[in-house]
Simulated assay, not measured.
Amino acid sequence: MTPTSATTQPGTRRQVREALVRARALWRDMTGESAYDRYLERYAREHAGCPNRPDGAHGSGHESAHEQGHEPAHGPMSEREFWRARARQAETEISTGCC
């Protein structure tokens, strides 16, 4: 192995790794797999100023207050809840298309 090839190899590995990361992100976007990640990002932005977030997240005590009927629910949906809600919406949404 020549000294030149040994010094360029880590850069090539990095470029390949970066290309694979970009390809994976694109694939996840195309297949819809990244929808939950985008939901969590949007939820964090929209609820950043919520007074019920002492540690940057909604606490379980807040959820129990909702269960008692005192205030609306806070906290993002779990991944399972998100996908179920998305499937439910797709089933009930009225299509205006021809098919």
Score class of each variant (00 low, 15 high):
Arg53Ile: 06
Ala65Ile: 07
Ala48Tyr: 05
Ser78His: 08
Ala73Trp: 13
Pro54Asn: 02
Gln9Val: 02
Glu81Cys: 10
Ser60Glu: 13
Val21Gln: 11
Ala35His: 04
Ala65Gln: 15
Met30Pro: 00
Tyr39Asn: 02
Glu63Ala: 12
Asp55Phe: 04
Ala73Asn: 09
Glu18Asp: 15
Arg88His: 05
Thr12Ile: 14
Ile94Tyr: 04
Leu26Asn: 09
Ser64Tyr: 14
Glu71Ala: 15
Thr31Pro: 00
Ala6Leu: 10
His58Ser: 05
Ala57Cys: 10
Ala25Glu: 14
Met77Gln: 11
Thr8Cys: 05
Ala65Met: 13
Arg42Gln: 12
Arg86Lys: 11
Ser34Met: 00
Gly75His: 07
His47Lys: 05
Ala6Pro: 00
Ala23Trp: 08
His74Ser: 11
Pro3Arg: 11
Glu71Val: 15
Cys50Ser: 12
Gly59Val: 13
Glu71His: 15
Met1Asn: 06
Arg38Trp: 01
Glu46Gln: 10
Pro3Tyr: 03
Ala19His: 08
Ala87Trp: 03
Asp29Asn: 10
Thr92Ser: 04
Gly11Glu: 06
Ala85Lys: 09
Ser34Leu: 00
Asn52Lys: 10
His62Ile: 12
Leu26Pro: 00
Arg42Ser: 09
Pro76Gly: 04
Cys50Ile: 05
Met30Thr: 07
Trp83Val: 04
Gly11Gln: 09
His70Lys: 15
His47Met: 05
Tyr43Asp: 06
